[in-house]
Design a protein around this nucleic acid. Sequence first.
DNA 1: CTAGAACCTGACGCCGACGTCAGAGGCAAG
DNA 2: CTTGCCTCTGACGTCGGCGTCAGGTTCTAG
Lengths: 126, 126
Amino acid sequence: MRIGELATRSGVSVRALRYYEEQHLLSAERSPSGQRHFPESAVDRVELIQRLYTAGLSSRTIVDLLPCVVDGDATPELLDRLAVERDRVDRQIADLAATRGRLDSVITGAAENLRTGRSCREAATG
Amino acid sequence: MRIGELATRSGVSVRALRYYEEQHLLSAERSPSGQRHFPESAVDRVELIQRLYTAGLSSRTIVDLLPCVVDGDATPELLDRLAVERDRVDRQIADLAATRGRLDSVITGAAENLRTGRSCREAATG
DNA sequence: CTAGAACCTGACGCCGACGTCAGAGGCAAG
DNA sequence: CTTGCCTCTGACGTCGGCGTCAGGTTCTAG
């Protein structure tokens, strides 16, 4: 498929796809006129890339790990880097969970204050 | 305390602290000579700010929500924004958990391939 | 054949959370 | 007094993941 279709199907911009190719995250056949042609599998691959991006991995890291993630093909060194990233994601999740808890208790408390018709500040001074 | 001490105690750079003040995330008394002086409570506050940053909130959002988070003082509108952010964090956690699972199974699979002394690629071609 | 959509390659713009450098005070110790 | 560290205010630099514009080619529908 051409780049426009891949863009709509994977939900990312055409510009982003070109960027991914530039970063060697994605490869494409070229038609004689120079247009990119992607296989069906590119849709999944782009979604995977997005997933890794949102997990905080950089292009550099992703390009190193992708062969391993896609093919299951790894060296001990790659395995290490994968474990490092997984652990980072673990810490990130724990951190977010703590923040979520904090936000939640703030929401609960503030909602309670609203319901009882007074803020903590007012409660303190009055 | 002065800015250097706050920096070492909260684990962020002096530059970052000045930036936080500039963004109205932090306020400081000034000595006659212009040096900032922070109360003890600033340490916790900086850690809270860091927590919210790493949860993906922007300075703009944090500055709006901080009074609420710190004082429990909220309007219905603020409560909405808090809930929006909490839900975003929820989705982020779910997303990360999925990615973590993916990474983990890749690691397991690749480790298995290494242990059995062959890659998937080799397994496919031989 | 032609209009318009889709595609191409540069190349500059952007944004946020700082890093970093410059140049100039301030402050405790010997 | 001076040495040396801390602090100050600008102000420009950075980096990553694109957005966006320019100027040109290519594909497709009528």
